[in-house]
Amino acid sequence: MSKVLVIAEHDGVMLNPSTAKTVACAASINGAIVDIAVFAATAGPIASEAAKLASIARVVTYERSENKHALAAVIAPQIVAVAGEYTHIFGPSTTFGKDLMPRVAALLGVNQISDIMSVESSHIFKRPVYAGSAIATVEAPMDTILVATVRIASYSAVTSNNSALIESGSPSVVDIPTHTRFIEVKSGATDRPDLQTATKVVSGGRALASAENFDIIYKLADKLGAGVGASRAAVDAGYVPNEMQVGQTGKIIAPDLYMAIGISGAIQHLTGIKDAGTIVAINKDEEAPIFEVADIGLVADLFTAIPELTEALD
């Protein structure tokens, strides 16, 4: 019998949608009982949201002031202290989970599985390697605890129709390290839909040639109600901030509509959009590799095509 603990991701106020996707993966293990743990300074609203997620048995909160910011060095030993009850511990494969879960695994003396994309059995999973050029089937030993991250683009969020029990976990006795201190997060927060959960995403590449020119991408996105992404080249050149990068080393996303504008389609970029519903590519080079994967392609100069498209979408 599998008993899975899912570590909730949140920003101190709200549950991150990655949690509902991680639960979807956990619940796809046959007969699994799934709990959610919330490590926070104040867990209240986060725990109530978590308790609504379908397929979970209970939410356990661990409140202490040190948990105000999600520092792996602070949270990992607290997870280890409660791990004994579980066969599996899952986190999302976001920067939060990728930072935290290997630390948990190492403290438990086990290896970790990164980026689960499908569950074959309680201890056999599929995951992408080589920027998604190959899919590996991996098998973990049955007799040790299994720690993993879940590739959230591979899962749809479970629905929010539950009302699971919320318990407050008994405070663990571990010493909390003070060698790692949070200072600040700088984010270019916008009103646009979040890249990782948006149903539509418009991305621009190096071809945009300046931060000012990216404006035409924002205008199109706003018309569509879309989130905005970018290639690494556009981020490196400083046209847009780092959190907009899509790809192997940026965000892995699965919107219903993805528009790649002035992006060549390098493998490292494509691995971030494999699960998109419909991919539209606009590029002036008809040989661009992006057209090999696009559902709809248009060979055109973006500086005329995009304003025209934005206009036509009224």
């Binding site: 920003d11 520092l71 976001t94 920067t95 939060f96 790692t180 201190r181 949070f182 200072i183 600040e184 997060v185 700088k186 984010s187 270019g188 927060a189 990782q196 901030p241 780092n242 959190e243 965000k251």
Partner: peptide, 10 residues
């Protein structure tokens, strides 16, 4: 470089 933007830690 985190999903939300840039986090600074000491």
């Amino acid at each position: 470089e985190v999903d939300a933007g840039l986090e600074v830690i000491e």
